[in-house]
Computed example of a mutant assay.
Amino acid sequence: MKKRLLLIVTMLFVVILLVSCAGGNAENNKNTKQATDNKGKLRFGINNWAENVAVSNMWKVLLEEEGYEIELNTLEKSPVWTGIAQGDLDIAPEVWLPITDEPLYEEYKDDVELKEIWYEETGLGLAVPSYMDINSLEELNDNKSKFDSKIVGIDAGASLMGLTRDAIEEYGLDYELIESSETAMLSELQNAYENEEPIVVTLWNPHWVFSEYDLKYLEDPKKVYGEADDIYFMTRKGFEDEYPEVVKWLNNWKMDDDSLGELMAIGQELDDPVEAAKQWIEENRDLVDEWMQ
């Protein structure tokens, strides 16, 4: 009887030991998988333009799905270039060339790696609602009373503002360029548009506002705003050697006015760029899967 009891106790001990080891192995496997899934921390340098915020959060969601930790750093244009050149940042999703970012590119081109184009033929200039009977910068002076001799601008240091000052001089425009911000400019545009009032603003595309309102650029026969830019992304030197799959995915990335406009419009609606990115990704999973091959 005692031997039988001892045998039962021994068997129970063995079972408990095996279960404990299995549990420990499962926990170890779980920890190992978590460690494997964490592929590293990538630091993005972004500026606070609507399309930049939208695509940066889109890539944050996509890369986190692949096991990377993503840090978004919002800076002005020049510090983004400096951060990439010095290796403090890994990826900058927007480089406008050959016009807008040309001074920064000339300064830093030996210390950064310019990659593929993901958006073709941007626009820069002065825009008005399509209900306005004006089509060229050369017509602005004849219509200055309609616009109260004011052009509603954005941040004082933006390249677009510098080009607009050049346009005022080149065309001899009797206008005041109002320095504000993208948010303030869009608020002025919305108020004017909803009441069908005259307004002229500094604007660029890609931008979600073109999917919301019927707008047109004023023709620029003297080409002060230059030819269309393309948008590239860039990385710090050596990044591709360390993260070849990330650069491969980003090189596959292509967007146009429809896809990018939809992403930005969802962001405006939800007022949450991460949730907007998740929604857009799920609605465009076939397109995204082509990038992530």
Rank of each mutant, 00 (worst) to 15 (best):
L5K: 07
Y108Q: 01
T82E: 15
M292K: 14
S211R: 13
D220L: 13
G24H: 06
T183V: 12
E76P: 08
N38H: 05
I99W: 09
I99H: 10
I91N: 03
E65V: 12
D111T: 05
G45S: 11
V224I: 14
D174S: 08
D148Q: 03
P103W: 00
V9P: 02
N195H: 13
N28I: 07
Y243D: 06
K115S: 08
E269S: 08
P198E: 10
C21N: 15
I168W: 01
V152P: 00
E196R: 15
E188I: 01
V9Q: 10
K3Y: 00
N141V: 06
L218S: 11
D220M: 12
K237R: 13
E212V: 15
N73W: 05
E106C: 02
G238Q: 10
D166Q: 10
Y175Q: 01
A54H: 04
R43D: 08
L114T: 02
V19G: 14
I178K: 11
I46R: 11
Y131W: 10
V14H: 08
F239V: 07
E121G: 12
V19E: 14
K33Q: 11
Y175M: 04
D110H: 03
P206G: 06
K41Y: 06
W280D: 04
N141D: 08
F210C: 03
Y217W: 09
I199K: 05
N48K: 13
Y217N: 09
K30Y: 08
L177T: 07
W96D: 06
Y105K: 04
E227M: 09
E245S: 13
N52W: 05
G67M: 12
V95G: 01
T74H: 12
E76H: 12
E27G: 10
M234N: 02
K30W: 03
F13M: 14
V15M: 15
K33F: 00
V288P: 03
N52P: 05
Y243M: 07
E194N: 15
W253I: 04
G172M: 07
L186S: 06
Y175F: 13
